[in-house]
Structures are given as structure tokens and as C-alpha cells.
Design a protein around this nucleic acid. Sequence first.
DNA 1: CTGAAAGCGCTTACAG
DNA 2: CTGAAAGCGCTTACAG
Lengths: 336, 336
Amino acid sequence: MLDVAEAARVSVATVSAVVNGTVSVSPQLRERIEAAIQAIGYKRNTIARSLKLGKTRTIGLTVADITNPFFTDVVSAIQGVLHEAGYAVMLCSNDEDAAAQLEHVSLLLDRMVDGLIVAPAGDEVKLKPVLQSAGVPIVLIDRVCDGVDLDAVILDNRRAACDAVTYLLDLAHRRIGYVSGPLDTSTGRERLQGYRDALEAAGVPYRQELVRFGNFREADAYQATMELLAFPERPTALFAANNLMVIGVMKAIRDFGLSCPDDISVACFDDFPWADVFQPQLTTVAQPVRAIGENAAKLLLERLGGSEAHFPRHLSLQGRLVIRNSCRPCLVHNVL
Amino acid sequence: MLDVAEAARVSVATVSAVVNGTVSVSPQLRERIEAAIQAIGYKRNTIARSLKLGKTRTIGLTVADITNPFFTDVVSAIQGVLHEAGYAVMLCSNDEDAAAQLEHVSLLLDRMVDGLIVAPAGDEVKLKPVLQSAGVPIVLIDRVCDGVDLDAVILDNRRAACDAVTYLLDLAHRRIGYVSGPLDTSTGRERLQGYRDALEAAGVPYRQELVRFGNFREADAYQATMELLAFPERPTALFAANNLMVIGVMKAIRDFGLSCPDDISVACFDDFPWADVFQPQLTTVAQPVRAIGENAAKLLLERLGGSEAHFPRHLSLQGRLVIRNSCRPCLVHNVL
DNA sequence: CTGAAAGCGCTTACAG
DNA sequence: CTGAAAGCGCTTACAG
């Protein structure tokens, strides 16, 4: 910028003025300066600008697993609106590792991001204080931390899980195994609660041996399903807590020599773009992924725009049960 | 830092020395300073540091489509090694929109990233000069730009496509439709060449009416497949240029009232974690996704470490044909 | 081993 | 409308 100023024989203040359009500059000067900028190939140093302004125009985003299509879609939506608004996004994925997430939040905060969007990866106890003392606006997505009053946009997990399990119950299933997520995530807790709600509404007793926990990933789900299938009174239907887990469920069913939906019904959380064309066509609860991302980004943008006044806002979106052919009416008479 | 210096009654230079461990400081002083840091809750301002040092310790990453599991896996691998090395990554996805990618590269460069990893999204003509004048190390992944001499790690697309099509030919297929990617990407060009290589080696003439182009996304592939299936002499097998396109292919087959593999065989580029458990089980060419990402990150790290001397290095990895059950021997006698 | 001071490249009151 | 100057928070020779 100094070079430009010299070339155009003006002060740096004037160059800054035309670059930012903050103050009106006489046409001749503006032209001279713009010519100099072209000639020199000047590009504003955003780092210096950030230092002076105390704003970086970049926001940090940390999700549990970038490999999970759910997060991928949410991230894509977030990026869309943030880029539109002139923000860059720094992304960190932690493979469902809470300790790694903690480091990532520090890394992001170190780099002076203007705001944070985070999908907590378990271990809320440690995460909470870090988020609370971050000093920048934060919005939580997908998962919330109990007792942390931050903006959040999530799914109505309890209701959605309840809908899916109710559907299974309506098909006369009574022994419904649940391959659950971990209870140190709000999604894990709420979806389990939805499962229980559905059973209770149908007057079916909750049996904890039908519930197995895992960390929302395929390997755990495989193991959990193998255990469930080994019961003398095998479940007639299985509900999986997310998109990754259902793959593990299906692999276990196959390796157990069973077939879905002939021998066992399966439903799960999270939809797939290919669910319509491969057999069995999975019955899923579809999340409004783009809406989650877009709303989160917008909430953050509002905070960044300075709406400090409001209370934390929680947006709870509804899932949608997409019925395909992976569930059949239960024919065996269940003695509970 | 000034506050810390005052509290510890030393100069900022000394504080800086203990924070960075650059110069040895007497134990008592170090202790006093560390106490002050704790007390004040001081955190180094990375922006100021970056300005002074001319390095941001963050690298820019721009891929064509973060929604595509292939890129997602590559990104995940890249992040792993980069985080390990203390770098943050700024990610931009452009939905296969070359103009958007151009903007993203500017946004990244503006923010003074130390290096760039890019998967070019078509329109190389415009991208080339931008990359060449970037002034930071760059490594290309998945796709290269002709005539730009940059580090790159890619797949041997030609060979992999040839292998897959050869497999189809070995099953006696002669009318093999190809749902291709765009020719303004190197992957598009090379995979098509591989298709042609296979035909030529088998002595089967190349018929351009059997090839349809799309932009590596589902919708285009659907349209392309509908056209292919409408031929009086319908193809007996279809090869899709990537993971997104094969979904469109399968939807078109279904909507056409056909079934795979009974009526038509299908193979594609890119593997799926669920390919083993849903019918038809797709025959695919699996890419070493993690290796691509890891190698790209390592190449970049080397450049960042100052190995300017070498020529551009091109790493070409091999794909692997995974044979499942979506392809059957061709029974109809083909008259070409 | 420790401190005073310059400078990284910007922005922004404050004068004129 | 334009310029001189201070300051954002660091790092790093250079003295002592």
C-alpha cells in the first residue's frame, strides 16, 4: 500500500480510502490510485487489516465427522451462506474424538475467528467452559450441551425417533432392538428417549437388553448388532441411531446369515440419496440438513451483526419419516 | 502481552521469549511470567504474529464438491496430517462451479494462507494464471491443469477406467454406454481415454453415441442415462464416471422399468462403504482416498519446509477394481 | 540473560 | 478532499 501511495503520489490514508470506499475521493485521484494499484498488482493484506480491526471475517466450524454425509450436507449449507456474506470458514473434523475437538476449538480461537459453529462431540463437561469463555458468538448445531446457554439449531430428535419406532410398533413389532448413539451427546440421549416414548405409548415395556450403545460409527454398530442378534429371542426389528451405524447393522445382519426385510426389519436415522435405488430400500427419518446449516449460519451472522440483546435462541426442526421397504409387518407372535 | 509484561515487571520481549521458547530465560523470571500469563488468562494473538512473521500457519483447501464422499475422505485425510503439523485448514467447496472456485482461491489468498491444495473444478484456462501467480506452494489433487507445473497427486485414471471397461468386455459386453464427466477436467478426459483404450484393445469400435457427458453430478447422469437407454440398440452395460453419477444411472434404470443386473450391467468409478450390503452390490473402481489426501498434505508440508529446489512432483496412484454383483455376462449376441 | 525500539501493513480520528 | 501520525499485538536484531 505504501508502494501504491508513492506511485500515485498520495498518502496511504488516501489509498486506504479508495480501496475501502470509506471516504469519497476526487475522481482524478481515485483514477490515479486505481491505476497505480493495477500497475503494481497490489492486494490488500487482510492480516494487517484484521489486526487493526479486530475482525478476521472468518468463522470456525467444528463437526464430529466430516466423513458423515449428514455433517457434510450441513457444512455445505453453512458454507453457502457464510461465503455469500463474505466470510471464510475454517473447518475441523475430529472423528468423534472429544479431546481432539477441544484442541480444535483452541486452534480456531487462536486464529481469532469472529464466530464459531460447533457440533459437540461428547464429553460436554470439558467443552462447556471452553465455549463459555470463548468471547465470540457461538451457535451449536445438531447436538447441544446441557446447561450451556448458546444459540442452537437442532432436530427434534425425541419426536423423530418416536415416530420411527411407532411405525415399527404399528407393524406389530414388539422386540425392537435399538443401536443407540453415546449418551454423552444430546442426540444420543434424545433419540433414546424417543424410542422409550414410543414403547411407552404402545404399552410395550422397555427392556434394556434390547439397547446397545456405540459412538455413531459403523464398527460399534456392527458389534452391537451382533450381540442383539445373538439373543435367544432375537429382535424382529432394529432401529439404528444414525446413517453410519445402519451400515454396521446391515453388515451384521448379512454376516449373521439373515436378510432384511425378510428376516428382520430395519429403520434408521438420516436419509441417503441412494436409498431409493438399492435393496432393501431403507426406511429412514430424513433430517432437513440444508435448513439446519442455513439457519445456523444465519443465527451466527445476526450475532455478528450485533444482536447481543436477545436470549439464546433454540431452533428445533422436525424430521420426516420416509417409508420404504426395509420394514415388514411382524408375523411372529411376540411373547414378552 | 503488554499486560503480562507489566504484571511480571519485565519487557514484552521477555514475555515473547518465554511464550515461544526462543531464548532461554532464567527460571525465576520464567516462573513469574508464566504465573502472570495464568493470572491474566493471556492468549497470544496469532493475527499479530502472522503479520510480523508473514506466515499464518493455515492452508487453503478448495474442492469441487464437499458433498461428494470421495472429496470428503480426501479432505479428512488432509486435515489429519495438516492438524498434526500445527496447521489449520480453510475449506471451500464450489459445487463444481469453476467461477466460484476462482473467487474462493482469491478469498484464500487474501487471507494469506501459507499454501494451497486444490482440486480444479473445470475451466482451467482461467484457473491457471491465478494459480501460477499465487506466490505460495500449491499442490493439485484428483484433477490437474494441463500445462501448469505444480505438485500433484492423482489417480491413474486412464488405467483404472480401462481396467473396469475391460472387465465389462471380458463379460462379453460390446455395447457399453459411458456416462462421462466433463472434458474440461483432467479426470473427465483421462477416464474417457481409458474407456477408449479398453475398447481398442478388444477390437471394439468406439461409438460416440454411446458416450454422454455430464458434470459429475447425479442429475446430469440421470438425463444422460435416459438418453442412452432410449436407443433402439440399448447398451447392455453402463459405466459411470463417478460415485454421484452412478446414483443417477441407477435411478434412470429404475424409471425406465429396467433392473440391474438382470437387464443391464453397471460399474462405476469410486467405491462406497455400503456397497457390500445393498443390492445390487456395485462393481466399482476404488480409489486410495486416504493415500491421496495424505500424500498431498505431505508434499505441501515439504514445500512449506522449503524444498523449492525440486521440480514439480506428480504422484500417480493406482485404483483397484472391486468386483461385486452388478455386472453379468452378456447373453445377447451383439451385432455392431 | 534482559530491555528499548523498530517495524509488519493496515485503519482512523484529527488537522488542515 | 487529503495528509501526518498513532496504534493494533507481536517479533527480533541490537545493545547492555
